[in-house]
Design a protein around this nucleic acid. Structure first.
Lengths: 116, 116
DNA sequence: TAGATGCATCGATCCCCGTCAATGTACTGG
DNA sequence: CCAGTACATTGACGGGGATCGATGCATCTA
């Protein structure tokens, strides 16, 4: 096995955590950017659709109808998710297939981990 | 033993999760409200200070200096956290002591849980 | 090459958020 | 009571997000 979860030390910490030591301004700003990307119903639904996709990829056109928003609005939200590192797009001919970055999502999840 | 974690069923789910089945509009809006409360550096630092407090309680006056914001601004953010159910205040004479609602925070954390 | 399709960008609009000074409210102490 | 302290609320300002129609760009197809 190539690499474990970094060899967590008792006192150490791999990522800034809300429940660990008090955050400084920079750490807080970085985490806030991540949660800001999650702070919209449309974006959360985009993520959940991606997570539920059998092959882990969804064409942008599959978001417009189900989410009830215009195509520019969907494109806007997908861009925000992309800039936040939560999704990645892959152009294939006319279509762009987006996939979920589960590591990035796990990092935000870890910031809320009770143990710190 | 009184009550386990609700007897999780393979297909069932206790709370809306971003990584489970696609979220409907209502579930997504509810989760988005929670993450919106986390999407600010000042509020994240308030939470982290509360989490790091030895007795789990911090007087509001202890936020103003370290966070470098005015007293009304701090009061504004604490109110948002309170309305989101993430903190609770307890008035004792002149002072108001705030404490962290770790269950509410854990619920948001669970919504990002990889298993669903 | 012309038209159609999928997606991104632009421009405009509306609304909400973060911030602070000023003020209000509640409690304490003299 | 009155002054002071701790916190909340108000009002105003600036900035940015959410939304959509119109438009631009790339690709496919006839």
């Amino acid at each position: 096995m190539a690499k474990l979860v970094a060899t967590i030390e008792p006192t150490g910490q791999c990522c800034p955590s809300v429940l660990g030591a008090p955050l400084d301004a920079e750490e807080a700003a970085e985490l806030a950017d991540g949660f800001m990307a999650l702070a919209d119903p449309v974006r959360l639904r985009v993520l959940s659709i991606l997570a539920a996709a059998p092959d882990g990829e969804v064409c942008v056109c599959k978001f417009v109808g189900p989410l009830g928003k215009s195509q520019p609005t969907i494109s806007h939200h997908v861009k925000i998710l992309s800039e936040a590192g939560l999704v990645a797009g892959d152009r294939r001919g006319k279509w762009v297939w987006y996939s979920l970055n589960r590591e990035r999502l796990a990092a935000l999840q870890a910031a809320l981990q009770p143990s710190g």
